[in-house]
Design a protein around this nucleic acid. Structure first.
Length: 477
RNA sequence: GCGCCCUUCGUCUAUCGGUUAGGACAUCACCCUUUCAAGGUGGAAAGACGGGUUCGAUUCCCGUAGGGCGCGCCA
């Protein structure tokens, strides 16, 4: 009988859900989904000082936006502290843990001395075998784990391979603080066990912790889950990912106009590959994802590749779908509210009509919104610097000559406009570009835009003609 | 300081002892073209260094250098 897979994502709610956490969540989710298993969510909020509800909400929102759904209710670690205490007491009763009365000052001295003398253990185990009757009065003890003194601790990690520590280098960690609350090291082990987690997939900043947790599992006689410690994501310069580099909350990526599907695709390829395949639908990545294929070296975050991928997903999205995404995004971007207010049914219709050509040139949803700016502009248009440069007296004269011909176009379609303009350019003896650029400048106020005949069609005849009349000026004779 | 991990084009990566070291992003050139994109074609671009093992090493081993992580009554 094969046991079903249970993974978990266990963030501490001390800040937003950042990009590395998002990837860890994605890996857990993909692994579980690919095997008919479950991914649990556990909020590691045992640090009451630093945990906030805002951070918890940000984690839920971020995962939801990314399309990563956890199974069941999120577990709040703090609510399980009685159980953690119970296990600590159990270890104490079994002689596998002990009370330690060392003061903070003593601890500091020990650490300094150990460092000075090149010793690995920072705590010297002074209360390990001491009789409790020697306890100083009035001091509340912590409970420390009685770690093995010799031998080795081995982890067979799915990503890191076999990693070995000499036990003489691992000291006695605190399980229960003097105020009776559990430490992370105890809580993870107990929770992963109680939640029946079969696979622990997390950042390799936890690799050393894994050795110590392994010792706790052993002391408890519990089965150790499969471990997979994935390399961290670094900044473009190889150093730790900082805010400047992209260690932003996933909500920031949403605000920049990235699509969840593009984010997932980018993230899954960071540290993991499946031959030469670059583009993965959700179904494909679920089917192909495998722990064994995860690399062991850290990957650097690259905005350019994310953007390129996002452009790909935008081009391959339906127009209506993009319109919906944009409307969802508007409240989250600067100036979005004003834009939303301007979005009358008629303008929305124009935006939608322009979408197929807009999306060819956009890398983000924000690009789409910016690109559609000409639709929202009010007359007379303010021409930007480059557009003004295009609008020479000759160009204005050309527009003046073109005006009556466009006036006659009926019905008003991109094709009809194109025929008229091409014929006009030919007769005038100028290149199409000589007409198209002034048209673009007059109609959009810019020097880049979707195809000019598209623009004409999307804007409609009356608005187009009006904008052209604003800029046209017959040549002085 | 102690422990653990990592090292292929600028970046993400493929290769599981024998390859003209492949793909993608970025970059350059050309094509297409009303602009910008997109698309097409082509180019430049890599095994950190030093030792082994082997008929043969990017691939296996050791060392060096560089980088990362951990070493809390944080998680």
């Amino acid at each position: 009988m094969t046991e079903s897979v249970v993974t978990r994502f266990a963030p501490s709610p001390t800040g937003f859900l950042h990009i590395g956490g998002a990837r860890t969540a994605l890996f857990n989710w993909l692994y579980a989904r690919g095997r008919g298993g479950k991914m649990l969510l556990r909020i590691e909020d045992t640090d009451r000082e630093r945990s906030t509800q805002a951070a918890i909400d940000a984690i839920f929102a971020g995962l939801t936006w990314l399309g990563i759904a956890w199974d069941g209710e999120a577990v709040h670690q703090f609510s399980r502290s009685a159980r953690h205490r119970e296990i600590a007491e159990q270890l104490l009763a079994a002689g596998k843990a002990y009370r330690c009365y060392a003061s903070p000052e003593e601890l500091t001295q020990m650490r300094e001395a150990a460092r000075r003398e090149g010793r690995a253990k920072l705590y010297d185990g002074r209360w390990r075998d001491r009789d409790p009757s020697e306890a100083p009065p009035g001091v509340k003890p912590v409970i420390r784990f009685k770690a093995p003194l010799s031998g080795e601790t081995v982890i067979d990690d799915e990503v890191q391979g076999r990693v070995t520590w000499q036990n003489e280098n691992l000291d006695d960690l605190v399980l229960l603080r003097s105020d009776g609350t559990p430490t992370y090291m105890l809580a993870v082990v107990v929770d992963d066990h109680d939640m029946a987690v079969t696979h622990i997939i997390r950042g390799d900043d936890h690799l050393t912790n894994a050795a110590r947790q392994m010792q706790i599992y052993d002391a408890l006689g519990w089965r150790v889950p499969v471990m997979a410690h994935i390399p961290l994501i670094h900044g473009p310069d190889g150093s730790k990912l900082s805010k400047r580099h992209g260690a932003l909350g996933v909500d920031a990526y949403r605000a920049m106009g990235y699509l969840p599907a593009a984010m997932r695709n980018y993230l899954v390829r960071l540290g993991w590959a499946h031959g030469d395949q670059e583009i993965f639908s959700t179904e494909e990545m679920i089917a192909a994802f495998d722990l064994a294929a995860i690399g062991r070296s850290p990957a650097r975050f690259d905005f350019a590749k994310l953007e390129s991928l996002n452009g790909h997903y935008i081009r391959h999205s339906g127009d209506a779908e993009l319109m919906a995404e944009i409307e969802r995004l508007l409240p989250h971007v600067a100036g979005g509210a004003e834009l939303a207010a301007k979005l009358t049914p008629e303008l929305r219709q124009r935006f939608l009509a322009a979408m197929s050509s807009l999306k060819e040139r956009a890398k983000t949803l924000v690009d789409l919104i910016v690109g559609a700016g000409f639709l929202f502009a009010s007359r007379p248009l303010a021409l930007d610097e480059k557009a003004q440069a295009v609008m020479t007296p000759e160009a204005r004269a050309l527009l003046a000559d073109l005006l009556p011909e466009l006036e006659a176009v009926e019905p008003w379609t991109a094709d009809a406009a194109e025929q008229t303009v091409r014929a006009f350019a030919e007769r005038a003896g100028v290149k199409l570009g000589a007409v198209a650029q002034p048209l673009r400048a007059a109609l959009t106020g810019r020097v880049t835009s979707p195809g000019i005949f598209e623009v004409l069609a999307v804007l409609g005849k009356s608005e187009s003609m009006a904008r052209l009349r604003d800029q046209a000026q017959p040549a002085a004779v």
